[in-house]
Amino acid sequence: MFTQKEYVEIDGHEHGMIIEGTDKENPLLLFVHGGPGFPEYPLMAAEKLAWLEDVTVCYWDQPGAGMSYNPKTQGELSIDRYVNDCLAITKHLKQQWKREKIYLFGHSWGSMIACLTAHAHPEHFRALITSGQMGRHRESTKDTLKFLERSAAVRGEHGVVKRVKKVKIDDTLHENADYRMLLGKVNKYGGGMKKNGYSNTNSLVDIMKCRAYTLRERMNILPGAALTYKQVGKEMMDVDVAERTKRFEMPVYIMHGRYDYQTSLLEAERFFEKIDAPHKDFNVFENSAHTPFIEEQDKFIQLFQQILQNDGVTS
């Protein structure tokens, strides 16, 4: 197995990435993490997802996240900026690894960026794969709040029920500190990163144990995530990904957890129904929340290998 860490400058800002694999001749995949502003390499490294036998994976830290956090150079962040940067990283990888096309994998917020990039620049990608697929974040947030209210009521946490009812889904929601605190309950109730729970403490442990990151890069993650959400939260709330990406020129594969209440299953299903592609496939993971590729790894690897076979990569 090999692990490479590198930095690439785009428009005066340094982007960090970690590239891992077992065979440099394997197909190449760009992983677009969620958040916004929350890199997932520490989680992936801790869980040791077994897909490195089949692909070489580039874990790119987006502007404002971990290896790519620098308020002095990153400037104003926007969805279009992330799409442009994703395209630049794609071109860099294709040139560096001498690939005609690569796979694109988007998780959560990253599914939005991956979809917009693949839709606008299809010539670079063999297939689009997403998990925690975003659709209309405003509508997804309504589903999240219903889940919180229902779960709190079952547990007799009447104070939480009252707090949920006070939340207004408006243009200032991304600045609502009480709402951000409530989102921690999604993890507690089994609708967050993992159905069986994945607390902020669990996340911090994975981050601090991540040897590939310097101490400064580890410390960048929390302030980076806060700053990033503050800058793009309102714009994210207004986007309808299905309306922005009605047609794809490559196969599209979506994997979603039944218990995902960070990105609504209903919104993911609506997105799937509305888009057109040469081939599209939707798989629901019955025992997962927001990270089915971690929670049900055997099923994910089986489906992932089938994607590669469909593309003629493996025999």
Rank of each mutant, 00 (worst) to 15 (best):
A277M: 06
R218V: 09
S199V: 07
G257L: 04
E175H: 11
V161M: 07
F105P: 01
C86D: 07
C115T: 08
D171T: 14
I129V: 12
K98F: 12
A225M: 09
E139G: 09
A50Q: 08
H174N: 06
H107T: 09
K72E: 07
Q302R: 12
M237W: 04
Q231G: 06
A152N: 03
K168N: 02
K165C: 02
P39N: 06
V232H: 04
V32D: 03
P39Y: 00
N287H: 10
L116S: 13
I275F: 06
I221H: 04
I307F: 03
A225Q: 05
T214M: 12
R218L: 09
K162S: 02
H174D: 04
Y213R: 12
H137N: 08
K185P: 14
P63H: 05
H33R: 13
N84R: 13
Y82N: 06
K98I: 10
G106K: 01
R244W: 03
Y261L: 08
N287S: 12
E123W: 11
E235W: 04
Q74F: 08
A127R: 01
P292T: 03
G16W: 05
D206P: 05
N196C: 11
A226Y: 13
Y41Q: 14
L52Q: 07
E286Q: 07
N200W: 14
V57E: 03
K246T: 08
A212E: 10
P42F: 01
L77R: 01
H13L: 10
T90Q: 00
A277H: 01
G35W: 02
E157V: 00
L116W: 05
F282A: 04
R180H: 09
N202L: 02
N70Y: 06
R218T: 15
L128H: 11
R180W: 01
A152L: 11
E267Y: 05
V160E: 01
I294E: 06
H121E: 13
T90M: 01
A289V: 00
V57D: 04
C86F: 05
G66F: 00
L227C: 14
K24A: 13
V8L: 09
G156H: 05
K162P: 03
A50N: 09
G159M: 00
Q306E: 14
E76F: 13
R155C: 14
K5I: 15
K299P: 11
E249T: 03
P292H: 02
H137I: 15
R136W: 04
L182H: 00
E296I: 07
T56A: 11
R138C: 10
Y82A: 07
K48Y: 09
T90W: 00
K91R: 08
D11I: 04
G132T: 03
E6C: 10
I301N: 07
K24F: 14
Q4P: 02
P63C: 11
M134H: 07
I221F: 01
